[in-house]
Design a protein around this nucleic acid. Structure first.
Lengths: 226, 226
DNA sequence: GTTCTATTCAACTAATCTGTTGAACATATG
DNA sequence: CATATGTTCAACAGATTAGTTGAATAGAAC
């Protein structure tokens, strides 16, 4: 292959790679990917959760679809979108991890909005996995119940935010409570841990969310354990 | 945290994540990242290898620097740029892998320019690692010698493209020869394997390049073995 | 069929990005 | 000191992108 052909090859090749990069270049699209990591969603769901107009959400979804990062199916009036594979989530995780470790601004944003996060006890997936086996913890899934039903950490109890009060009677004060959520930046587990701590429970949050747990290869339960 | 604050939090957070995405959104910048995975380079080197003007290369480098993905040091007249960490390469790998597995166009480009790639024998890193221990293969590093000196697969012989003729006497015809290069799309190993096969050697290419070998945790040799 | 609803499309504006050019800056050498 | 070289900066033109609005489309429901 001569020099000109070689250059042409590289340019065509990297143009393709950049299609993925471009898809990852918008905050809104990253939010969509993060949301879809929880499971299928309709365009309307996505628009609502990301505070976009439906048209705008649809356009971003088309962009992601163009990069083959999401797929859709139609069911009646609704178009359901989902990630096109686990590797899409993995790539998003890599991008997020890179930002976390290199951009000081990420920490600053977290500290600004989650002022007391560093005062909360936190456990990571490996730690929780160990303590699951000896039965010394109660695990709370604080996501919307629908997401719980689509898969959760084995033995976890579904306690969507807002339902904490009514679920209190199920929580033994002698065991530690670990709450988890959609991802490392999902604020609901923070809030639950704060509320439980204030009531005298020993509570901590899982540093990662359910998608990270699942992608890391830890066991997942599909049916409600009770 | 109320709804408005929650939204603000997400927007600031994902804006930061998107900084990394934006840095990955240009083919030229991806090419720079891929090149810097081989080691430090000056602005001029980068401009030359990626067929850009120096000003343009410098601007892309500033963009990557803004996302904290590259770092630079000045030595006399020259500014030397390098990747800001192994995680930068890993993220680029994830993006590339996603494009490979989801975008049919990648295969099409490769087939167009490397017509006979599928006829060449290929081994992956794990396979090569096994065969290294039983001494049944000779490994050729076909990158520029400087890159070989910065680190190579243990026992590999440096045979930069063009120097193949003079190195032929070192290659035993009874052993299999495995050639590797900068990465999975580096064409030099293809060319060397083709040339060797035509001369009656049993030759194959390593499917990955040196950075992938290194990042996967396989052993690396720093000094010339002889 | 008409009507309703979810989604997509098209047209438009504002904003951002890319590459070019030539000037400015930094560091060497004579 | 002047001069040369590598790099960066600033200003500009052209292309691309993001979000808005309103129309078009597809599939229910009546």
């Amino acid at each position: 292959m001569n020099t000109a052909a070689h250059r042409e090859f590289k340019e065509r090749l990297f143009e393709q790679f950049a299609r993925v990069g471009k898809a990852l270049a918008s905050p809104k699209r990253l939010e969509i990917v993060d949301l879809l990591a929880q499971g299928e969603r309709t365009v309307e769901d996505i628009a609502k959760e990301t505070a976009m107009s439906v048209a705008s959400a649809s356009q971003h979804l088309q962009a992601l679809k163009g990069a083959r990062m999401v797929e859709s199916r139609r069911e009646g009036l609704y178009a359901h979108y989902r990630l096109a594979g686990e590797d899409v989530f993995r790539t998003w995780q890599a991008v997020r991890a890179l930002a976390e470790s290199h951009l000081a601004e990420v920490d600053r944003v977290v500290e600004t909005y989650l002022e007391n996060r560093d005062t909360l006890e936190a456990v990571d997936a490996m730690e929780l996995m160990e303590r699951l086996s000896d039965g010394s913890v109660v695990v709370l899934d604080v996501r919307p119940e629908e997401e719980y039903r689509a898969g959760h950490i084995p033995g976890a109890i579904s306690v969507p935010v807002g339902a904490l009060e009514t679920a209190l009677h199920m929580l033994p004060k002698d065991k530690e409570v670990v709450a988890y959520c959609r991802g490392p930046y999902c604020v609901f587990s923070d809030e639950v841990v704060l509320a439980l701590s204030a009531r005298g429970y020993r509570a901590s949050r899982l540093t990662e969310g359910f998608p990270e747990w699942q992608t890391a290869g830890y066991p997942v339960e599909l049916k409600n354990p009770r």
